[in-house]
Structure formats: C-alpha cells, structure tokens
Design a protein around this nucleic acid. Structure first.
Lengths: 192, 192
DNA sequence: ATTATCTATAGATCTATAGATAATGC
DNA sequence: ATTATCTATAGATCTATAGATAATGC
C-alpha cells in the first residue's frame, strides 16, 4: 500500500488540485473529504496524513488557484502589450469564465465564503487578491502610480462583480448583457 | 401547544426573517434548520409545517431580503433627488454595510452560493437583482434609457464587487482603500 | 524501521418525518 | 374536528481518528 516518497508528494499535489477544482464548483461545504479523496483516486482516511484539516486544504487550494490566475494574467498582459487591460478584461468577462466554475477566479466563485471562513483561508484569498492587483496596476492606464492603483482597484471590483452577477442572472440575455456592459465600461474610452 | 391562526402566520414571518439574517451571516450551509428554529424561538420539528424544505425557506429569505434592499434604495434615491446615485453608492460602500453581514445586500453575501444552488433560490436572487437594477437605472445619469441601462449595470457590478473584495481583504487599510477607490470612481466626474 | 495508505468506525451533525399533544375555531 | 407545535428519531452524511497493512528506504 505504501508508495514512494515522490509518489506521495504527487498524491498530495493531486489532492490540492482536485480540491481547487471541486471547491470552486460546489463551494467549501458542497464537497466532503471523502468525495474529494475519491475524486483524487485515494481513500478517505489517507487525507489526514497530508493535511491537518479540511480547512488547511481549503487554504492551500485557494492559494494555488489564485497563483495560477495571477500567472495567467501576467502571461495575457505580457502578450497584449499596450492592450493589456483589454486582454485581461476580455478574458475575465468571457462566457467561458462565467460558465466554467472549476477553473475560474476564486474571488468570484468563493469570495464571500472565504471571507466568512476567516483564518488561513481568508488570508490565502486576500493574498491572491493582492497578487492580481499587482498585475492589474501594471496593465491599467494612468499618469501616476496612485492613479493606476486606483484604476486597478476600481477595475478589479467591477470585473469580480460582473462575473458574480452574470452567474446569478437566470436568463442568458441578462447575463450576457451584464458582461457586455461592464466590458464596454472598462475598455471603451471613459468620456462620451 | 397550538397557537392562533394569526400567531402561526407571525411565527412563519419570524422564521423567514431569522433565516434572512442567519443565512447572510453564516451562508446557506452554515446554519441548520434546528439552529434556525431555535433562534426563532420554536422547535426543530415545527419547521416543516411552514416550509417544504430548507431550500424553500432559503428562496423566501432571499426574496424578502432583496425586496427590503430595493425599498431602501428607492427611499434613498427619492430623498436624494439629483444626487441619487451618490446616495446609493455611499450607502452600499459604507463600512457599516461591509461589516454587518446580517442585514446587508444578498448579492454580495450569498451571490455565488445562490448561483450554485440554482432552482428557486437562484431565481429569487435573480429577481432581486432585477429590482435593484430598476431603481439604479432611474438614479444614474445618462442621456438615453439605453445609456442609463448600461450605466446601471456597470455600477451594480462595481458596487457588488467592491463589497465582496472589501470583505476578503484581511487588513483594514486595503479594505477601506477598495471602498474609497470605487466610491470615487463611481461618483466623481469620469473624465480627469 | 519507517511511513503512505488503507479499512473501519467514533462521534457529531444534518434534513426530514412520524406520531403525540393541546389549543383554536367551527 | 382541525391544526400548529412539540418530542423523538430515522437515516444519511460529515470530520477526524485508530489501528492494520505493505512497500520503501535505510
């Protein structure tokens, strides 16, 4: 039954990645440790050799999810050059992002739950937010660093809110309308 | 043990109001039927005489919470006249709203969970969103109805996102900074 | 010998229901 | 007689742990 040290490390990574997917799909309370381990191809009891608690795993899952988001943002911004903001916005407000919870931004799938959870989970998500803001500050137009900081905060809030609302809307027309309105508000020249 | 027909109706209302408070504080999965009934001063088993299921209650709790938000918005907008948007924004982005989950906007406390839940709960929240948008469309500046509609959608997303993020931030400086940046972005003249 | 994983289970909790109780309302 | 509420519990599920197992790594 025992596996190599390296295999055990891989199993641990697989548990975290599975959790990162399932928590985003079903919420922290929507998936139990047993389901989670089954999805990772392991047994229930093996879990506590890897993690102190479900909450411990939740914090690590949020951490890697948001680190992946940050890397994706940095790649997109880098590739888009001058149009970095538009590239980030188009990506975040896409219907793919809205519809595929399992790989989406943790801020919009688990934000309120993480805030309530507190402790290491909230801390991990707060750090992830800071990381995304760093990328956004470099992608947003503005004369001074202060202006860019403010613009990044405003854009971040608007993107997260748009995805949350687009997932609440129960008719697709409204959902699409929300994404389109916010995309236009963020990208098109502010002065009309 | 039996109470008057009127008392029973009052008990039902009290259950819904208690649920509206507790669900926002702890999430749908954070409070059980037994806790909820105890908080309402009733016993566990009595619940199913009033509601078909916990989910049924959740939908009704979201409905009354969002109806109350809409009424509050309408009152604020009415009282502020020309400055309706600023009044709504100041209220939504206040630290009181951020800190007091129990009476806050359901979109920012339970939005992602309601979207996952689907069914009547999601439907109730989607309808509540539409109601708030109606008030916001009348409060936002813009030459045409289409322009106001777009501005309302953009503002709604930004307000919800700002509160979600301000609750995630684990240092108060960042949390306040988010609220202030978004407030200024929404209220101050858009062109600098 | 160590340790990653397994089986099995303790103990707590959750939703929902069954049947008893007692006050209302005909 | 009806019915709102109560007590008690069924049945499912959840987190976490205890102890067994078997392959690695010294």
């Amino acid at each position: 039954m025992k596996v190599t040290r390296e295999q055990a490390a891989q199993n641990r990574e697989r548990i975290i990645k599975t959790a990162a997917r399932l928590f985003r799909e079903k919420g922290f309370d929507g998936v139990g440790v047993a389901d989670l381990m089954k999805s990772a191809g392991l047994t229930h009891g093996g879990f506590y050799g890897h993690f102190a608690s479900k909450s411990d795993l939740a914090a690590k899952a949020c951490e890697i999810s948001l680190a992946a988001s940050r890397e994706k943002w940095a790649r997109l911004a880098e590739a888009a050059g001058e149009d970095a903001l538009a590239a980030l916005v188009d990506n975040y407000l896409s219907d793919v992002h809205r519809d595929r919870l399992s790989s989406g931004c943790v801020l919009s799938t688990l934000g309120p739950e993480a805030a309530r959870e507190g402790g290491p989970v909230k801390h991990a998500v707060a750090n992830g937010l800071k990381g995304l803001l760093e990328v956004l500050e470099q992608s947003v137009p503005g004369r001074s660093p202060e202006q860019r900081r403010k613009a990044a905060l405003a854009a971040m809030a608007q993107m997260v809110g748009a995805v949350v609302l687009s997932r609440i809307a129960d008719d697709e027309a409204l959902s699409d309308e929300i994404l389109a309105a916010v995309r236009s508000d963020l990208i098109d020249p502010a002065c009309d």
